[in-house]
Design a protein around this nucleic acid. Structure first.
Lengths: 346, 346
DNA sequence: CGTTTCCAAGGAAACGTTTCCAGAGCTCTC
DNA sequence: GAGAGCTCTGGAAACGTTTCCTTGGAAACG
């Protein structure tokens, strides 16, 4: 049998009017039953439910939200960097779960760090009248976000700060986290430490580098590479650094994929036990490698939950000033970050 | 400044009527301009666009789809097992990208292998009048899916077969993949091989076990554990197997998390170089471990793309019989699967 | 010049729902 | 026993859009 098209479905096209006629009641009564409003005689309500079941009636959420006084669509939209990245998907999971508790659905899309894709997504989402937006912003004061603000859709920026009046934000204590990790390396005797970071347009990339520089001011002994955004790029850059006349005794990475790239290069050179490595953001299996990869771990689920909470507060009518929520990071020692500098070795 | 609520936004509440009044044209003309229909005088169209810009007008997709003849919402819904799982997020990513090319948005949710959550999600999605559904089904012939079919929403099952008339499916050649991997172990001299699999309610779990049994018929020498669904559970089970009087010389795992759990147990016992391990489904960093973890790799992006294609064909009016698409797997040798049986060692 | 043809443009109906309002039937109170 | 108050019900308007259909005017044709 062929799969029916929408028009041919049994229940498709059945409206409240049809249910009302079959149950022998008025349209308004059906609406009341469907929405669970009290004040309908029990036997009448049962008759309506039966008719609805018989006809295969399905409530139409789009028509409903169009007419309803609050015009809510019970939908929030999520603009991620890339759903396939574990950080993003953990964020999405947390937000989706928090939303589900309130009967809210989540639309999502990936910007791939591309401002024009971000703009497209925000535009599509506002056209669909999402009740609110949670965005991992590509830039500091993106036009798209500004437009959403002007339109009046509540907006929460997550993971990165944004220069927009009145936007709630949730971030991680990037600078402190990196500084603390760098301080540990310093205490272990490291003086030649390389920092590999993401594109400078990204807020977190700046913050993390700043934390590193708090301990290791940029200079010839502390080479900094920025703009790395893939495992391959980081791997290549690490090989270059290792081939230099005075290679670093430790690496600090500002991101997930970069950490993996560096580690890959170290393993290829057989140096993973001799050169220290600390990465920002935890990743699965970091503990199964030998040595385990020490990281500055964030809690993406927590980040998502806080973002959802801020957004829901706005949806509930909170008109207060913009809030900023900072979630702490946690250093996880697994071995790679505890390798001492050669000079400090016995 | 306080973040405005939806009612207070500048553009919020601006309708086509307002734009029409400001531009001094009729409502119908604005609609034509907004939808890019030809047959409007250029200067009039420009006037409309200007008025829309001035007022901050945003097209309302919900009202639009309500009235439009085809009643399309340009939305498809995705029911995953768990967005946070790399397999699921890769699937989502591929589907979202394919959909974006057609201007279609993707709603998604996680069933967590729970049929009642699956039912909730399918119901919510049909209430929102998604044009189509892509589902990783929890069961063989779920009520929820049947209901969607009856309602007439095109439905594609992905990753798992489903016993429903006329439902398109996309799966991987599970049985062949596992059988081929098992055959390699057999050739390497292994005779005591343990199989650890997921819950038997899951179609793929059955298929993969069947493939294993094609080579190693279930018996005392080939212990089978099923119903493992977390890293911890698998780790625990592996420890038990290793402590048995005659421990297996190789493990075959039917899933991602199980593979990791087994590997974790092997490393804790210091046996990762002596006992072979092959897992179904690749995972990041499998190659950075020593030895690297050999896997039967699937291509989730490909799976998602095929599912999207099947669905879009239905949306485009394809009324043909249900189709079934099988995507091949690929064995990736990384070391752990190439460890020979002790008897075969020199 | 009169008639037809064509095309741009606007008025109004309709999509499926929620919600206001009015009416009907009741009980309760003075 | 009549009016007030209450509860339940249904009719109809409205949400913002698309689309049918009509209209007015200009161009084309005899």
């Amino acid at each position: 049998m062929a799969q029916g098209r929408r028009q041919t479905g049994a229940g498709r096209g059945v409206t409240m009017r049809d249910v009302a006629d079959r149950a022998g009641v008025g349209l308004a009564t059906v609406s009341r039953v469907v929405n669970g409003v009290s004040g309908v005689a029990p036997e009448l309500a049962e008759k309506v439910r039966e008719a609805a079941r018989d006809l295969g009636y399905r409530h139409d959420a789009t028509a409903s939200s169009l007419r309803r006084a609050d015009r809510r669509t019970d939908t929030v939209a999520l603009v991620l960097e890339d759903v396939a990245n574990p950080f993003s998907s953990a964020l999405q999971r947390a937000i989706t779960d928090a939303a589900a508790e309130r009967g809210i659905m989540v639309l999502s899309g990936s910007s791939d760090e591309n401002p024009s894709r971000e703009r497209d997504l925000v535009e599509t989402f506002t056209a669909r009248r999402a009740d609110g937006l949670i965005v991992v912003p590509t830039g500091r004061a993106d036009d798209a976000l500004r437009a959403a603000r002007i339109f009046g859709t509540p907006l929460v920026a997550v993971d990165r700060m944004v220069d927009l009046e009145g936007v709630d934000t949730v971030t991680v204590d990037n600078r402190e986290g990196t500084a603390a990790a760098a301080a540990r390396l310093h205490a272990a005797g490291h003086r030649r430490v390389a920092y590999f970071g993401d594109q400078p347009t990204i807020w977190t990339a700046d913050e993390r580098l700043a934390g590193f520089s708090d301990i290791f001011p940029v200079g010839p002994a502390t080479p900094v590479r920025r703009g790395l955004s893939s495992v391959q790029a980081a791997e290549h850059a690490a090989h270059e650094a290792l081939a230099s006349p005075e290679p670093p005794t430790a690496f600090v990475s500002g991101q997930n994929l970069i950490t993996i790239g560096i580690r890959r290069a170290l393993q290829e050179a057989g140096l993973e036990h001799r050169i220290a490595l600390v990465g920002f953001d935890d990743f699965p299996l970091a503990d199964l490698l030998t040595p385990g990869v020490s990281v500055i771990a964030q809690d993406p689920a927590r980040l998502g939950l806080e973002a959802a909470r801020l957004l829901f507060a706005r949806l509930d009518g909170d008109e207060g000033p913009a809030r900023h929520c900072v979630v702490p990071t946690r250093y996880i020692a697994r071995g790679s970050g505890e390798i001492p500098a050669p000079s400090a070795r016995p």
